[in-house]
């Protein structure tokens, strides 16, 4: 088993259901993910897209839903739409720890030639702290794009 490359966690004063909704509903992702919508029906095997709003959305990242167990675990393939061979894996895990929700994001299985680790390793902390702020205060943080 290879070492996962990027692991991030944040503790959020919220419920697993609210964290799941914040991850999977575009009306919420737009508020903390630099205005980007993450769109899918989040069923196993479905496609998901991360895209800008508007009539001609620009797709930043795409992929398939590998595993979906609301509100606990979501596994996605993470693909650069400009280089469809650049496939990696993102796992969201949501668990209750005492009176908070612990959200862990693991981004791994990068291809040896992938440019993705360098593109996302600054982005994930920004997105996750923005998500925490959004769920706890109702406001995301500015400039929280990832990828």
């Amino acid at each position: 088993m290879a070492k996962p490359m990027l692991v991030y966690t944040t503790y959020i004063r919220s419920t697993p259901k609210k964290v799941w909704d914040a991850i999977t509903q575009p009306k919420f992702t737009r508020q903390y993910w630099g205005g980007l919508a993450l769109v899918s029906d989040w069923k196993k095997g479905s496609t998901w897209d991360m895209a800008t709003a508007g009539e001609t959305p620009e797709v930043y990242t795409t992929g398939k839903v590998v595993e979906s167990t609301p509100p606990k675990r979501l596994v996605l393939s993470w693909i650069d739409p400009e280089n469809l061979k650049d496939v990696s894996r993102v796992t969201y895990e949501i668990e209750i720890v005492k009176d908070t929700v612990c959200l862990t994001v693991t981004h791994d299985q990068f291809k040896p030639s992938s440019t993705m680790p360098g593109r996302v390793n600054g982005g994930w902390p920004r997105v996750l702290s923005s998500l925490k702020s959004f769920l706890e205060t109702g406001k995301g943080l500015a400039a929280a794009k990832c990828g």
Binding site: P4, Y8, T9, T10, S129, K132, S133
Partner: peptide, 22 residues
Amino acid sequence: VWRGREKLHYLNPVPLHEISER
């Protein structure tokens, strides 16, 4: 992160980003 019996340690910069923002 546990990998079998091995305990792996990862740097998590999320709290640092929270401090920088807040």
